[in-house]
Design a protein around this nucleic acid. Structure first.
Lengths: 196, 196, 196, 196
DNA sequence: CATGAATGAGTATTCATTCAT
DNA sequence: GATGAATGAATACTCATTCAT
């Protein structure tokens, strides 16, 4: 990749990050291209130089988010750790990520509303990948008799829901750092799984 | 209340319910007055007879939701039941309500974005009321040594988060009814609290 | 049709006429919705109440134009007149229409650029209809040995082209009225056909 | 002219030809600088090295067209040929030129919309020159009693209109070559003039 | 000379809101 | 009370134009 290409890639990534943040904060429709651009001291026009349209920006933002989380969960799965610690690590990473990126792995409404065709398929694929990885960890724990025999999908959804909701109530002004909060939360959520 | 007043009140409530549903489905900004009116075979114009503006509609919708949940939680608190059963009942009601109304107790983004001044205070008050009631139940359980000594606020947020997220994944086409699902979920979430 | 419906239909027709004129004058892309609205002392918003979008406005304008000319040519074809007079009448009507409506039967570029799918088919159909009617008149004249044996399609295109071009050079400030000019032109163009 | 200047001149001419074609195809406003540049595998930026702005490009394109046609008509006028053949030659050249350059001597709308001041004068001058040359040929034919006594200006406009319209209907996929078509058309149009 | 990038003015379009009937 | 119509403010998007490298 040439220097110029690197610069372009960086700029694109910057815009995506900016977009993720603003959209997570205000919602897709309430976010204007102006908002996203202003945050980076750019003009709308520039953003359009890098992205086809607002929807494209949303798609790529969301895709980036999901890819990052898939990368994260895959790495952790491949670590040589006890299953319980793996799952805790995943949860903590998930929570810290949400807090630090000020975003959410979950759109505030169904992807079907925003994407269609190939885009929707890719997004669904990535979501499924993450969900499956999560499920895999839970199942492994169940096999190992460390987790109780729960309905994997439901429990996974509950845990992800509880984590994604954190952005609604966690305040950076509070006493606890993101990491501390992630530690506490993962401990609590683990209780849903741990054999008593 | 005269007949006319009753009729008006009913119409208002109808509109609110319609609004709650569409807004929950598509998000506030993506929802047009047309959408809300069309669902009731009305015209936009008529809606304005009953509500000052779109924001007012949102406010009253959301307030209604919160009032209903507060009413619900208060009734359950006053029942003569073991604490564990009370909390389970609250959770089940919360979940069933979310599924049936196809809405969410939580706006998809912070209330601060939509309300201000007195409205915001009232909304915050109602949310606090609900949170406090929830906390009260948790604390009672802790006092009674039935629940373990968790950080009440965090756990409450986790549970509410997990429940509010249900709308993102529960499908009415699935095998389980809302009640069955609520039963299962509340059982799982209860594990966060129950002493092991 | 109720009074209200009549009013709406009239308004629509007014907008179409306004659009036809401005678009014929400045071209589709150079014409703004503002231009069209301003001409009728309306706001853009109002125009959008009656028409889906700018393209829709163009389509309906053009369709109206073609329908009117088809109606005109059909009426003349059905008159009980010598073939030569029929064709002259068609030409004169065509020319007077172009001058009075300040528009052109022909878009300035190919319809394919503006329409697609069903719209394009309908436009093509209407154009074909007009062309066929024109051809029919020419052929009739040839059969009757009044016109010479020309290539019907080419001659039709030449005549229509010459007439559509009138809008480029006819000035309302000149000495001749539209009718006089139409008279002269049709006489000249007839020479292409008349047996010598 | 130095080599460099020659190169520059060639590039300019290339761009002009490209511009003429695209503008004739899509219309001035629908044509983007990108379109023109892309056709020559250039970037927009480069085009600006050679031309001040889009309007300048249009002006020079159009001027070039008119100059070429003036050159053509002048050459033919100066040939030693019977008047009838001269006019036929002019028409054929005009038609072949339009078809080959895929452009039109006539802008799709009035020059007044695109040019002003000196530019407009020059364009008008060139148009007038062409028109006058055309008229001169017609008048010569009338003097020679070969053409009938028509209104020169009107007939000239009719003939030019019929020819400029060719681009709207002539298809390169048809059986007839541009030259054959030009032959046929000029023959037909000549009938307007020829004494019967 | 060429070009990638940035910009801003202009335009289509949407939609909450108003109001006369 | 209801509604068809009208409006204008807001916003996505395009594209001619500029300029640093």
């Amino acid at each position: 990749m040439s220097l110029r290409e690197k610069k372009t890639a960086k700029k694109k990534a910057d815009i995506l990050r900016s977009a993720v943040e603003v959209i997570a904060e205000k919602g897709y429709h309430a976010t204007t291209m102006e908002d996203i651009a202003a945050k980076l001291l750019m003009t709308k026009g520039s953003v359009y130089y890098y992205f086809k349209d607002k929807q494209d920006l949303l798609y790529q933002s969301y895709k980036m988010l999901l890819e990052q989380s898939n990368k994260m969960i895959t790495e952790i799965i491949n670590m040589n750790l006890p299953i319980k610690e793996k799952l805790e690590k995943v949860m903590k990473s998930h929570i810290v990520f949400i807090i630090s990126e000020r975003s959410s792995y979950g759109l505030k409404v169904k992807p079907e509303h925003y994407f269609e065709g190939e885009q929707l398929e890719i997004i669904f694929g990535l979501q499924e990948n993450y969900a499956n990885s999560f499920d895999q960890l839970i199942e492994e724990g169940i096999q190992a008799k460390i987790f109780s025999e729960v309905d994997v999908k439901i429990v996974r959804n509950l845990i992800i829901g509880a984590m994604n909701w954190v952005i609604q109530w966690y305040s950076t002004e509070g006493k606890k750092s993101a990491e501390e909060m992630a530690e506490i939360i993962s401990e609590y959520l683990m209780k849903i799984l741990i054999r008593s």
